[in-house]
Design a protein around this nucleic acid. Structure first.
Lengths: 181, 181
DNA sequence: TCAAATACTGGCCGATCGGTCAGCTATTGT
DNA sequence: ACAATAGCTGACCGATCGGCCAGTATTTGA
């Protein structure tokens, strides 16, 4: 076997960063190839097509979620909520670039000059963020919120991993009304 | 002036629906023209380019937000939070297709088979959704959450306007820990 | 009645997209 | 030493994209 000067791993590394930065549709095969230092044709030697690259990037997330669900299956109440927070923060940190991909196109649109800086209004909402709800909308709410945390943290990679993990866990627990132990 | 058989309003109506359904990048000028029943060249007679269509669609949102901010400027505490909820729900309903545009690409990616159905995990998070935080992440959190509400409600347009408005307002107030009076 | 202006269109353009293919190169096992 | 093969590439393909333009039809005000 000839030495692989440009490996699959290099391609995946370039792809996940570019997808996270410019979105899936906003990243061309040529962009990835240039970043990885190889030709576009080399990409399609290692992967059947562009979509297969994204598929491989997202593939590990599914089983990890399934495993977390399994760990939560036997738990109830506060213990379950605490384990869910810990597990989700851990997953979000390990797959933070993947999560960023999901939010990239939102980023691109939300930063358009026609749209307002929503901070001032949201500030007032968060002044008294609390309450309880089992309405179906809130599940989407909570899911998007978790993604929102990662969106913020993903661009602050200078923060040490462990510090970030502790901060996120503490913030999530506090927001859920659980003791931050 | 010749009679406008295909007006600017028709084009904008087609565009906002298609952008909301398939995203900005996922909608071509030809798609819009076909839906509006005119030629692609006619689009570019009424609008300087594709981006100008999106710009015009998003344009009214900014001033409305600014006006809401002005109304909130003199308020404090619970009164401010309540007015913010009412105003945001109202804005979200009036511009629900615009908001859907922002979330469309998230939709496309989040429904990939490699990704898990996050409902089971999020269920446990929402079991005890409460708490309080003034961390900077939470502003993004709250903003994404508000978008999440709309994402859910936008696909349920069969619900009467007033019912939806009341439900959203009540849910938001309850989640903020304010009396739903 | 008739130029002027508006509304609109088919056809075309260059650029870029994802993807294919024949062939080159370097390393491998024998 | 030498096929075999993995890794990689330049060149090219058809499709599609946003955008341009000359030209046509319709309605207008004078």
């Amino acid at each position: 076997m000839a030495r692989a000067t440009t490996t699959r791993a290099d391609i995946l590394d370039s792809a996940v960063r570019l997808f996270a930065a410019h979105g899936f549709r906003g990243t061309s095969l040529q962009d990835i190839a240039t970043d990885a230092g190889c030709s576009k044709a080399s990409l399609l030697y290692h992967f059947t097509n562009k979509d297969a690259i994204l598929t491989e990037l997202l593939a590990p997330v599914g089983p990890e979620f399934a495993e977390l669900e399994g760990r939560l299956a036997g738990l109830r109440g506060e213990e379950a909520a605490r384990a869910a927070v810990t597990g989700l923060v851990d997953l979000s940190l390990r797959f933070r670039l993947q999560v960023k991909i999901l939010l990239q196109d939102v980023d691109a649109l939300i930063n358009r000059p026609e749209l307002p800086d929503a901070d001032h209004i949201v500030e007032r909402l968060t002044e008294a963020l609390s309450g309880r709800s089992d309405a179906p909308e809130v599940r989407v709410w909570a899911w998007m919120a978790m993604l929102g945390i990662i969106l913020t943290s993903a661009s602050e990679c200078v923060i040490p991993e462990e510090t970030l993990r502790a901060e996120l866990t503490r913030g999530a627990l506090r927001t859920l009304g659980l003791p931050t132990g």
